[in-house]
């Protein structure tokens, strides 16, 4: 069991020898339909893992399940974060223990000022002491991300452009200094300039203290953020893992050769409806994609 502090969890050190994030045979349901059919993945600090896969293959589902979204039910399997049972932790405990998710579609919350929110998040993760250095750190990160101070007075993601939202996610990630950072298609929908700023922001964070899981469609991102490992996720399973050359192969030939190869080995991949022949690239609207909304959990 996890030692579950209510607030201000100290930053745990990785136990000697253990992986920072260890996923074993993970199965995830959405509304009693299985989406993730058994995933194994080990991520250590200092490593960058890329996850590639067509639309609808379950990449975001994996990310949400790791981040403790109540709608994504883990039906079997284990996940350890620094040797502790991640699945026993609430979403906020996971965050305070060093897990971070850059959302593919960040939520807008009117009425909550960015600055106030960031201050509370820093306090939750690092305790009162963090408040003293918060201003200075914030100024520095804003500069790296080419964001104006005035963002701090704006409401959280409200009225932000796609690029601004993604930058705001990176800003939070940079401030909260996770040990495992999952980036869910942070690169999609960005123009060239925003893309560069985001990639630079991530590169500035790279180092021995953080492990990245970069979910992406495009090799573009992986040219900036060189991955150590590349995994192809199709039909709720990791069907192939390798080094950077795998990303290059996917970029050049798509997923078809991998699927054929698997078929030859007698492995049938269940493609989910969105993942149909064309791998549609357009982004759904936020409302359509909001996992709570389709469940009728929100009234306002």
């Amino acid at each position: 069991m996890v030692a579950a502090p209510a607030t201000n969890a100290p930053v745990h050190q990785s136990p000697a020898g253990g992986a920072t994030l260890a996923i074993r045979n993970l199965h995830v349901n959405i509304d009693s339909r299985e989406i993730i059919h058994g995933i194994d993945l080990t991520v250590n600090k200092g490593e960058v893992h890329a996850i590639l896969g067509p639309n609808g293959s379950g990449k975001s589902t994996l990310a949400y399940a790791l981040m403790g979204h109540p709608r994504y039910a883990v039906t079997s399997g284990e996940v350890e974060l620094k040797g502790e049972d991640l699945l026993a932790m609430s979403a906020d405990e996971r965050s305070r223990n060093g897990l971070f998710l850059c959302f593919q579609y960040p939520t807008s919350i009117p009425g909550i000022q960015m600055g106030n929110f960031l201050r509370l998040a820093m306090k939750a993760r690092f305790g009162d002491a963090a408040i003293k250095t918060f201003r200075k750190e914030l100024t520095e990160k804003l500069r790296i991300l080419k964001m104006d101070e005035s963002y701090m007075r704006r409401y959280l993601n409200e009225g932000f452009s796609g690029g601004e939202k993604k930058k705001a996610e990176i800003l939070q990630m940079a401030l909260l200094k996770p040990e495992i950072a999952i980036m869910d298609e942070t690169d999609s929908g960005l123009d060239v300039d925003a893309f560069k700023v985001v990639a630079d922001g991530v590169n500035a964070m790279r180092g021995p203290d953080v492990g990245f899981v970069v979910i992406t469609h495009y090799n573009r991102m992986l040219e900036y953020i060189k991955p150590d490992f590349v995994h192809v996720l199709i039909g709720g399973k990791i069907v192939k893992s390798g080094g950077p050359e795998l990303a290059l192969a996917v970029d050049q030939h798509g997923y078809q050769p991998i699927l054929e190869e698997l078929r030859e080995q007698g492995v049938e991949i269940e493609l989910m409806e969105e993942a149909g022949a064309t791998y549609a690239r357009e982004e759904p609207t936020e409302r359509e994609h909001d996992p709570f909304r389709s469940h009728g959990l929100t009234g306002l």
Binding site: A6, T7, M67, G68, H69, P70, S90, A91, D92, R94, S95, R96, F100, L101, F103, P106, T107, I109, F117, L120, A121, A124, R125, Q172, L176, D290, P291, F292, R293, L297, T298, G299, L300
Partner: peptide, 17 residues
């Protein structure tokens, strides 16, 4: 209606109790 759980979840993922 109830409080917007989408909003609450987002804040939880940033560590807010």
């Amino acid at each position: 209606g109830p409080i917007d759980q989408t909003h609450v979840y987002y804040l939880l993922t940033r560590g807010l109790p």
